[in-house]
Design a protein around this nucleic acid. Structure first.
Lengths: 190, 190
DNA sequence: CGCGCCTGTTAATGGTCGCTAACATGGTCG
DNA sequence: CGACCATGTTAGCGACCATTAACAGGCGCG
């Protein structure tokens, strides 16, 4: 059996790994389990990634890039700061609700990424945060930059908590709730 | 050398373990490391806990009990719902800022607690959440219970995110910021 | 004084893990 | 058609890990 398209396996592995890492943590999942989750067994993974850590690195790099790029586009497309902030919120909420496993791994497992890539991921994350901070600064004359940054981080905590409260609330309502709460939190204080 | 007071070692171990588990995750910390962190080496831990998992269980049980008891007391001592909610917020914020490692482990490592204790911890957590929900319900005619519960969970995400954004903002200001953001988030939506 | 408990030590054990080696297979293409 | 490359397989290696065994010192109490 030869694979369908190039890179299909790779993507399959990353998706399965995200679920497992989110559920039991990077160190709580073995290579053998990762293999079994995609129908192969164990060491077949090494045909696609040089090691377990590289797999995590690829995953977090992809997430960070998608978030950062999405943020940039949304801000660029917005007519004014108010609209930009709402668009950022909607984008992040869609991501958190749509790919809860990725969001979870993204803010728990950075420390397990080896050094060359960790720096790149951090840079991307910082860029994403600064996107929010710049927009927020235009809406609030008051805040010093560190305070705005802390505000944004706390808001991410709010938005990213969704996966952990395995929900009885349907996605559409949850999105609305998070939009309201996130907006209120961002504009509070000062 | 005989220890100062009874249970001193036990507490020392729990404190050190909280830091290590928060930093690298339950599976990322070895017994040997836990021992070294309190000046003994490795297997000495088994004089105080029957195993690694029991250690985690004791830690999470203690946190859950303190949060739940604190919540109960604060609500009982409050004159009205508005005051109760503010007191709950202040209490949780003080905990999150004062013991960031415990808060982190508390909402990441429950799955690694073995079954008899896990249920008890969950029960305590649920009780704490319901304390918040009852208060919130008195302040907001609108919300259905699941929505209020989701609101409270999201607010916890906001408050508990503090440890991860290792901060440039001093504690007192951070507490104020979280109070404002948390309050706004809780009363938003609907 | 001496016995026992509390608390610690080092050595060993059995299991698991990440990773490598050696080998197999099947489709692509010169 | 036959060599190559991509993608698997199983077996094995060395490291590490949680836990247990065997042993030791010191303090409190009879």
């Amino acid at each position: 059996m030869t694979s369908r398209a190039v890179g299909t396996r790779r993507v399959e592995i990353l998706r399965a790994a995200a679920e497992l890492f989110a559920a039991r943590g990077f160190h709580g999942v073995s290579i053998e389990e990762l293999g079994r989750a995609v129908g192969t067994s164990g060491p077949a993974l090494y045909r696609h990634f040089p090691g377990k850590e590289s797999l995590l690195a690829a995953m977090l790099l992809d997430v960070s890039e998608r978030l950062a790029a999405g943020g940039r586009e949304r801000v660029a497309a917005a007519a004014d700061p108010r609209e930009a902030l709402e668009s950022l919120l909607r984008g992040h909420i869609a991501f958190a609700l749509g790919e809860p496993a990725l969001i979870t791994v993204h803010d728990r497992e950075l420390d397990n990424v080896p050094e060359p890539e960790r720096r790149r991921i951090r840079r991307l994350q910082r860029g994403y945060v600064e996107e929010w901070v710049r927009v927020l600064a235009q809406l609030r004359a008051d805040g010093r930059p560190e305070l705005l940054r802390a505000t944004v981080h706390a808001t991410f905590g709010l938005l990213n908590s969704t996966p952990h409260s395995a929900d009885e609330v349907p996605g559409e309502q949850m999105a609305e709730l998070l939009l309201d709460m996130g907006g209120a939190a961002l504009l509070a204080g000062g």
